[in-house]
Design a binder for these strands. Structure first.
Lengths: 221, 221, 221, 221
DNA sequence: TATGAATGAGATTTCATTCAT
DNA sequence: TATGAATGAAATCTCATTCAT
């Protein structure tokens, strides 16, 4: 009872009609889809809504992406490409092991806080058992990051700073856990504990706390 | 008097049907709904499927829970009641501060690993911005857990074991992060790093690692 | 989304449990049904609502009335019995023809204004092409009224007061039209003309106006 | 190029289908809906039935009208637009006051008799307390008719033909009552009095009778 | 007589996708 | 490439009625 006969609205009021620019159209669809999917999930998202918010028609979505799952997967790829790029920019090799780790924690922390839609999409994809991620042509850039982390850890172990029974994947998981959770689960957390995990004051404290936890965990006993 | 026709009456082989036991019907629906929702999400879950797997009809679901959102919320409440109960059983007060914390970490770790459906539902609820949790009559048992944790931390601080600038909610968040992530995000993690986070070998290592991280984080510097 | 799991409310809070009194139960159901049908129509009325507002269960409704149509018809009969009774009480024979007619108009006017639910049910029944009225055992008391009106008209014609080419059924129809419409159609009338046809001030003016119209119509030319 | 397969393309025998003519589709739906609603009421009407009798699918109904209430309201608007148009065509200004009134009565009489579906919809809408009419964008053409009637009455009063204590809305109500009732209530009337109010013979007599009643009511005493 | 859980058919509405142009 | 009407299957929800007790 909420929508009262919307379709026959004639000429769309004041919308900048777009010239034929396939690549721009594609990007436009992808960006809107990213919002729609991250807010409503795969089954909750509506193709109609995406089409409406885009300057194009529903047909174009199918033309470019084939199906609803197709766009979802394209969004996912785009998001992973984004974080991949950021990781590539991170300078770790010139730093002392403890400094390098702190830098890595802080970068992860900042990225997750700055990209809640990415965090939502990852949570969502896990609810789908990662089936779309698995069938997507995501290149193994992640192992690049793991290998760089391995380097840092090895240096730390050699210098007697870090314990030697934890591998890079474990450490990566711990860092991700601490940085991801506070973004991913901020809503239930707030509902239960009345605390806004993303508020500026909490943020500074957590950033230090998380780095401390990781370094404490790695400390040679 | 004695209706001896009809399907196998005693043995529960085929389908009992028609029990006129409302509490059992309710529980039956809830249990099936829990599976369906945790696997498919709120919009992905199908009322038809729940009804089909239950001994009851679609109508009964509406009779007892009013709407799809209604059952979803009931499932959520049930799940939170479950973890609440477990937390209540945990003995912390008799232990030394470090031991108590380790015990708490291990209990959280075990609970999350043992209840992946709970973990899924919490992730899902965050994607919904916790709107169903907020409107559910979840009692404030969480603050009970927080208060007990506060007690442990205070003892540790008094004994010079723990640093004093972290409060119980922060520590709870860190513990939850480390225990929750490896269950919640195991699928994308596996897709990217080819490692099964729930395998027995990994599990033992992580349990220790996480406790170490928490204790390292709290260690008085 | 408006009703949130109502049924399992356990023991109905503070409801005067009724002792077994079949006739009272029947009357109770009928009265509630009258309200529900007059407000929502035959297909719009809900058996559940009637049962809920009654002190009895749905089963009783079927026990006493057989079906939804059954109660509707019983309500209709009750309503027609009511107006029949009022008409019987009306004294016309002792009055001069014009006075008798004015009295009849006023009685009809007052009855319709005082019984908007009756008016609704009659409108409704016409939308159903009077199929329930026709199959109801309504006795021909209406022809009694017609016969009394014939008497009045005949007297008036004999005394040279009334024209002779209108019969009692025509006159009855005219009276009914003028008295019924302002109650039956008061909502659309108000929506279109912003006038409340049942307000006290309008009422007095209309009562006189309608009697004038009938007498003017009958006046020997 | 030339698809010559498929059903009889030219002759509209079977079912044209797939016209891609939105305005025609809309009109088609509205016309069928008008019949279905006037026969079965808002809650009694079936979307399935409308869809089936239309050349379109159920979805199109929602596409164009949003909801069941949406079409109902659209039908209502269409019907009121219809009577509005007829009223606009009526010539009253050139006639003597009594002639003008008689003309107006006869036009109203004829319109109601010729449009029993309109009459049904108005009765129905009153049972709904005019809620759909009130929220519909019906323009105030009705006050146009009232203003023209005011003109006629003023002329009559000035010429000493009409009494001066009745306003145009009262007179309009009286005319409507007499013309509307015999169409709206013909079924219960026939059930009770065995008289068909719409039969040609009765019709002629009533038309005169009603005009007489109105003029008698207005006659300066 | 009475209660309230249960039934099953059928109602309205939604939505990914395709077709005519 | 692009538009927007159209499709059809399937989803959620409703409701008169009956059964177990």
């Amino acid at each position: 009872m909420s929508k009262t006969a919307s379709p026959p609205s004639g000429a769309r009021a004041g919308r900048p009609k777009r010239k034929n620019d396939p690549e721009a159209t594609r990007r436009d669809i992808l960006e809107i889809a990213r919002q729609e999917f991250s807010q409503n999930g795969l089954s909750g998202a509506r193709i109609d809504v995406i089409a409406e918010r885009t300057r194009t028609s529903k047909h174009m979505i199918y033309y470019y992406f084939g199906s609803k799952e197709g766009i979802y997967q394209a969004v996912l790829e785009m998001e992973y490409a984004g974080i991949r790029e950021r990781e590539g920019e991170l300078e770790l090799e010139g730093l002392a092991p403890r400094e390098a780790l702190r830098r890595l924690v802080e970068a992860t922390f900042d990225y997750d806080q700055a990209h809640p839609e990415f965090v939502s999409l990852v949570s969502m994809e896990n609810l789908h058992h990662a089936e779309y991620l698995e069938s997507a042509p995501i290149r193994d850039i992640n192992s690049v990051m793991i290998r760089r982390l391995e380097g840092v850890l090895a240096r730390g172990v050699r210098q007697g700073l870090f314990r030697s029974d934890l591998d890079a994947v474990d450490v990566h998981m711990a860092i991700s856990s601490l940085c991801f959770f506070r973004v991913a689960n901020r809503y239930t957390f707030k509902a239960l504990f009345k605390r806004d995990l993303l508020s500026p004051r909490v943020r500074a404290r957590h950033k230090r706390m998380i780095a401390d936890a990781i370094l404490g965990m790695l400390a040679a006993s």
